[in-house]
């Protein structure tokens, strides 16, 4: 009792605009990040995650402006990920108004970055994003590995061991995405979520696969997630954040109403 489970809408940002990917191909412009974030705040989102998917590095500075604008008007926690490669990138985003910075591929290439960043800005500002994929054969016990580059590049690193290592190095939170489930709408991979949640002391955000509100409950109750992240169910207006909270509340999950 006490701490609410968090619902976190995730926004993809490309060159300063929120975009919605439809079936991984068609990228549709979904508007101005400030107004989208404001709408989610009014609907009761507990936090907002921005993922910078800008391909060209010369447009990276655009994301700093986006964070500055949103943080000037929307007074809930903001997490920013995508393109974070060094401590200077972390600082730039925090100074712009982000509360947490998510490190993904760079942590795999250089785990010391997590320690260095955590020492400098505090563990509570450092999220390590883990993209995991099941790699066991059907008859084997479940096992997951870390993939980079949007799930295309295997690393051979065991996902649970990696989570433990990242927590030891100073991550304050883990954003766990199942690459098998991402975009499928069949629900979180509860196995990997539970395995990692049980293995570390820090909070876990479950991501990848949400298609309905029951999936959010399952992530918390069966996966042991402390927060649930979803993109498409909120973007395409299938459900509002308020509906998600009401649904979870009715099923006895503590949420901020």
């Amino acid at each position: 009792m006490g701490l609410a489970k968090r619902i976190i809408p995730c926004l993809d940002v490309d060159a300063g605009r929120v975009v919605k990917g439809v079936k991984f191909l068609d990228i549709r412009d979904a508007g101005d990040p400030v107004s989208v974030a404001r709408g989610y705040n009014e609907a009761g989102a507990d936090e907002i995650t921005f993922l910078d998917i800008t391909a060209s590095s010369d447009q990276r500075a655009t994301m700093v402006n986006v964070v500055e604008q949103v943080a000037s008007e929307v007074f809930i926690p903001l997490t920013v990920g995508g393109g974070i490669r060094e401590v200077a990138d972390v600082r730039r985003m925090l100074n712009a108004g982000a509360d947490k910075v998510s490190i993904n591929t760079a942590a795999v290439h250089n785990p010391e970055l997590v320690r260095e960043a955590s020492d400098k800005v505090g563990a509570q500002c450092i999220v390590v994003a883990i993209d995991a994929k099941a790699v066991n054969a059907p008859e084997e016990p479940p096992r997951w590995e870390i993939f980079t580059h949007g799930g295309r590049k295997p690393t051979g690193i065991d996902a649970v061991e990696w989570a433990v290592k990242m927590a030891e190095m100073g991550a304050g939170e883990l954003l766990l995405t199942s690459m098998d489930r991402d975009g499928t709408k069949v629900g979180f991979d509860l196995g990997v979520t539970k395995a990692i949640s049980d293995a570390v002391e820090i909070p876990i955000i479950a991501s990848g696969g949400v298609g309905n509100l029951q999936h959010l409950c399952d992530g918390v109750e069966q996966g042991g997630a402390d927060a649930v992240l979803a993109a498409s169910i909120f973007h395409f207006g299938e459900y509002t954040v308020a509906e998600a909270k009401a649904y979870m509340h009715e099923r006895g999950i503590e949420v901020r109403l």
């Binding site: 006490g2 002391e201 901020r256």
Partner: peptide
């Protein structure tokens, strides 16, 4: 560490999120 609730269930640290 571990931080336990009244039912001996482990709580996450950092204490992160919205509390009363």
């Amino acid at each position: 560490n571990p931080l336990l609730d009244e039912h001996q269930v482990r709580l996450k640290v950092p204490h992160m999120g919205w509390s009363k």
